[in-house]
Design a protein around this nucleic acid. Structure first.
Length: 458
RNA sequence: GAGGUUGUAGCUCAGUUGGUUAGAGCGCUAGAUUGUGGUUCUAGAGGUCGUGGGUUCGAAACCCAUCAUCCUCCCCA
């Protein structure tokens, strides 16, 4: 028999890791709740057609498909073979894969809103913390199963929502101790305006893909890629001017105005950024918010402000969250005119960042507080009831599972990082007492069992 | 989808130009110690050298294939 193993890109989480992850989840959840968001959960799988075509051509390839059951039924063989031929041609066939694992939380949410818009009170603010799956090749900071934590507001065009979301980022990262994060924002409208100004509105996607790589490959290579994607010299020169915009947020806004402020779309995009930037500084939230005109983001349903939260530059992990506004997400599901804006936290990457920067507080490691020694079959019944009275007080305790040498029980307590032990042996049973020992300081005292619940095990 | 890296004990890793019985540290079990842990000392258990094939008198080492892993590009959280 071969050794057991995990599917590529998936992980088990041991007790310590789960505690740390829960610390992150709890922080994010409590901030979402604080800002008035309501929880939602959707199934692990969706109908394939719900997901297909929503994430671009590349995205479609990364969707995990689920093979239909029952294909072994002889009656279906002929159809299955025909369907399989089509799959080999790169087509999607319902007969073979009707369902797929969800790829993100936004599209299932849009599907939910489209199905329930009659019942929902708008604006509907929901948060969602669930795993998603991508058939990507795993590497550093990239997994095939990972969690997303999303907060979205649908049914409101107000830019106040964007401001709220930037505050959520700030609150969460501050609480987690990732103070040096960067929140980059841009507006898709500015990118649209740039494409228009270059005379090629149809080139928008080519332009954004290329300029998004600026900090990775440098200006020259971006220009080369633009040329390769069919932009002429004049257009590239305009884009270069655009990319060279720098300075404070206010300075950048001034410069972009002179470049594309005369275009209707550009003007709108600039107003959006100005509003968020101003509101945020008026609210006293300082630093960290950086207007970045090279930010593009892949998902093509964004239409307004887009966000990207980046880890401190010292850890090479990059994006730890992202989001943006979409004017008409549910339109894909036949319910038009419901705008929305949302953000997402990438917990798995946040974990890696916190691990690297050693940001987890001591408190997350605590498990059992008190171990009761097992000093024999009859002694342990006294220990057991003493333990139950402590548990009633909310003290986390356990009784060693069998009578054993004290040496062994001590070592167990030490390995599990248990702070206190209580010894109730034959002498103690006789005197109705117990010995409490603090394993960190090495001090111990004898107390009456009635008094045990008054002790603090911290 | 393209390219590269690594695979030896539970874990981290040595292993010389191919040469006898494959090693170390940590961990594990037992004892020194039958009511006081961490330290120390002693002993012990634990290996299809990722898998399959080939070259060779002889392979953990060389060759081919395969699987897994990690990383880079693409794209993304």
């Amino acid at each position: 028999m071969s050794k057991p193993s995990l599917p590529q890109g998936t992980r088990d989480f041991g007790p310590e890791v789960v505690r740390k992850r829960q610390y992150i989840f709890n922080t994010i959840r409590s901030v979402f709740e604080l800002y008035g968001f309501q929880p939602l959960e959707t199934p692990a799988m969706e109908n394939l057609e719900t997901l297909m075509g929503k994430y671009g051509e590349e995205g479609d390839k990364l969707i995990f498909r689920i093979l239909n059951n029952g294909l072994e039924n002889p009656d279906k063989h002929q159809q299955a073979r025909a369907d399989f031929e089509k799959v080999l041609e790169g087509k999607n066939v319902k007969g073979l894969t009707e369902r797929a694992l969800k790829y993100d939380l936004t599209i299932p949410f849009a599907r939910y809103v489209a199905m329930n818009h009659g019942q929902l009170t708008f604006p509907f603010k929901r948060y969602q913390i669930q795993p998603v799956w991508r058939a990507d090749r795993p590497q550093k900071g990239r997994y095939r199963e990972f969690y997303q934590c999303d907060a979205d507001i649908v049914g409101s065009n107000a830019l106040l929502n964007e401001v709220e979301l930037t505050n959520i980022y700030n609150e969460v990262f501050t609480q987690l101790g990732i103070a040096d994060y960067e929140l980059r924002i841009n507006s898709r409208k500015i990118l649209t305006a740039l494409a228009e100004f270059c005379g090629g509105a149809d080139k928008m996607i080519d332009i954004t893909i290329a300029i998004d790589k600026l900090d990775k490959i440098g200006l020259d290579k971006v220009k080369a890629e633009l040329a390769q994607r069919g932009l002429n010299d004049e257009q590239i020169a305009t884009i270069e001017k655009y990319l060279n915009i720098s300075g404070t947020n206010e300075e950048k806004l001034q410069l972009i105005k002179s470049l594309i402020g005369h275009l209707e779309t550009g003007k709108k995009g600039i107003e959006e950024l100005e509003f968020v930037n101003r509101s945020r500084s008026e609210a006293g939230a300082i630093g960290n918010l950086i207007i970045d005109f090279t930010l593009a983001r892949g998902l093509n349903y964004y239409t307004g402000i887009i966000f990207e939260a980046k880890a401190p530059a010292t850890v090479k992990i990059g994006s730890i969250g992202g989001g943006g506004r979409y004017d008409d997400l549910t339109g894909l599901f036949g319910v038009p005119n419901i705008p929305g804006v949302g953000i997402s936290f990438g917990v798995d990457r946040i974990y890696d960042v916190m691990e690297e920067l050693k940001l987890f507080p001591e408190g997350v490691y605590t498990g059992t507080q008190v171990l009761f020694f097992n000093m024999g079959a009859s002694e342990s019944t006294t220990a057991f009831s003493a333990m139950q009275s402590l548990r009633k007080q909310g003290v986390r305790c356990e009784l060693f599972h069998e009578p054993a040498k004290m040496d062994k029980q001590f070592k167990y307590a030490e390995k599990k990082n248990i702070g206190f032990i209580v010894i109730i042996g034959s002498q103690e049973v006789q005197n109705n007492t117990g010995v409490i020992k603090n394993l960190k300081t090495g001090t111990q005292e004898t107390v009456s069992l009635a008094n045990l619940t008054n002790k603090l095990f911290i």
